[in-house]
Design a protein around this nucleic acid. Structure first.
Lengths: 143, 143
DNA sequence: CTAGGTGCAAAAGGTTTGCGGTTAA
DNA sequence: TTAACCGCAAACCTTTTGCACCTAG
């Protein structure tokens, strides 16, 4: 059983797509499933390769289309950690990303008490925030 | 007088390049100057266009080389805010970036009390962090 | 039925690389 | 003097676009 067949995720996907005015397609389901299967913050290219195992005819354009739809539904977020490809994260709970600048590994750390507070630009309406901590992971530090 | 001719910035640039083993070149000086002149978090392409006004023969490769050298010296940091081009920021004080998802404007807000604290991945050595707050700026909210 | 989605291929945009000539130290 | 740096142009990688066909609702 794929993860997205879990009642929770399946219902979430169906409902969110519908309420945002998107159609439910096998490609969107597969892209979401790929993201849920391995929470390693893959790039669009990674998602493309993994999705191709189940849907050999899927295209890059469709992967981008699906990722964009999932982002607009609030099921997935973009993660920008380095020059180069954007990565994608289906964990929508408040958390920050610890990023290893040497090996590229990403660790989610939940962040209940670190919401940016204090001053902000006058009239700025906050939608969401993204906290990235750069450094070296334990494995890379050993070497 | 260009900003980098300010004793403070000029000395900083000269010393940092030297201690990091980089040569002082007119291109590096110009790139740093461009970043200091207008703190609007330009892309590499923006920097290229602005630098070309003083150094008409400067190339893209050199702009990237200079930006990388400045980053390695600790005089400039990368800012990743959206899919597409990386932006550059010469403000090395602790601050977060308020980013308008509509017009692309970036506002620096100093952040003395919002250092990520609490749990972190075991053995992870923090180098620096980057906080981006996404939303809509006052001007765009009016429309 | 039909607007929205898909696959394909080409184009666009951002960044890196290789190379011969130049220059800071 | 010479390793580092430069400009140029091509290559590379990521993302977007245009179009004919397909399909969820």
């Amino acid at each position: 059983m794929t993860l997205v067949e879990n009642k929770k995720f399946e219902r979430q996907l169906t409902e969110r797509l519908a309420t945002s005015g998107f159609r439910f397609t096998s490609q969107r389901r597969q892209v979401y499933d790929v993201l849920l299967q391995k929470l390693d913050h893959p790039t669009a290219e990674d998602v493309f390769i993994r999705a191709k195992r189940q849907l050999p005819d899927i295209s890059h354009a469709t992967v981008y289309n699906c990722l964009d739809a999932l982002v607009q539904c609030g099921l997935v977020r973009l993660v920008q950690l380095e020059r180069g490809a954007t990565r994608y994260c289906p964990n929508m709970e408040e958390h920050c990303h610890y990023y290893c600048d040497e090996c590229g590994a990403v660790f989610d750390v939940s962040l209940p008490a670190n919401r940016p507070s204090g001053p902000r630009p006058k009239g700025f309406k906050i939608d969401h925030y993204e906290i990235a901590v750069h450094g070296v992971c334990a494995d890379c530090a050993k070497r």
